[in-house]
């Protein structure tokens, strides 16, 4: 990083603090998503509470990052790469905060689900969760390492998340048609799947902003889309997780 150093030490320190706060926020949000998934998959109520408890901390960090970014913009008039990084940080915190919200919503929902007698298979949801976690991890790595290639990788694998959502939708609707007593639990699971898909979208947004901050270019606004429409050209999937 020697080539990117600044003469004014405190400016460098403030940028470092901004990066540190972003990494901290990313770590908390990742943990929240992990806890929320454990809350559904392992029926872990403690994890559900812990996920919801971290919300205020994320909100607080979002405000702090915003404050610091605005201060840097106002006092230091950053240029070029720094300017892009700071502006991107402003937007990324918003995305991370939303991811945290979705995670705690999943956690709260998991407490309400009463599983019917005949077991609904959660393996699809678990796998989708792991895929989303993997994408989230990569996009936060992209923030902390300012790595545009990692960002591209996330951007490309969002399609697999969308395909997973479509597959899960199909599966859950089948459960509902089989037995009306499943409808309540399946509807909750459907919302959870949708929330996971939204988390994946926000992770992709983060990746797009990192790509912009590092390269100065925008990724095409048309994202690679999954779902039934893409089957014509031969869909592709990345390695997606397995039940553990």
């Amino acid at each position: 990083m020697a080539d990117r150093s600044h003469i004014v030490k405190s400016y460098e320190q403030e940028l470092g603090q901004l990066r540190s706060m972003m990494a901290q926020m990313g770590g908390i949000v990742e943990n929240q998503v992990a806890l929320a998934l454990s809350a559904i998959a392992d029926r872990n109520e403690e994890a559900a509470d812990a996920a919801a408890r971290q919300d205020p901390e994320v909100d607080q960090l979002e405000r702090e990052v915003e404050g610091l970014a605005i201060r840097l913009l106002a006092l230091r008039s950053p240029m070029a790469g720094d300017l892009r990084e700071i502006v991107a940080a402003l937007k990324i915190t918003g995305d991370l905060e939303r991811i945290g919200d979705y995670a705690s919503s999943i956690a709260r929902r998991s407490l309400r689900i009463r599983m019917p007698e005949n077991q609904i298979s959660l393996s699809g949801l678990r796998s989708m969760g792991r895929l989303v976690q993997e994408n989230l991890r990569r996009s936060i790595d992209a923030i902390t390492q300012q790595d545009s290639n990692r960002a591209m990788e996330v951007w490309h694998s969002d399609r697999a998340v969308d395909e997973y959502y479509t597959a899960l939708f199909r599966e859950l609707v089948t459960y509902m048609m089989e037995d009306a007593r499943n409808i309540r639990a399946c509807t909750e699971l459907l919302f959870i799947a949708k929330n996971l898909e939204r988390i994946g979208d926000h992770a992709t947004n983060v990746a797009e902003r990192v790509f912009y901050a590092v390269t100065g270019d925008n990724l095409p606004s048309l994202r690679p889309r999954g779902g039934p429409a893409s089957g014509l050209t031969g869909a592709e999937t990345t390695q997606e997780p397995d039940v553990r």
């Binding site: 997973y164 039934p228 089957g231």
Partner: peptide
């Protein structure tokens, strides 16, 4: 990932499958 590496491929010209199976194949 952008650090080089090796790609091994197994390709067939058979009947293929529907796209909605792909994400779940390794389950």
């Amino acid at each position: 990932p952008a650090d080089g590496g090796v790609i091994l491929g197994v390709e067939d010209d058979g009947c293929g499958m529907e796209a909605h199976h792909l994400p779940r194949l390794t389950e």
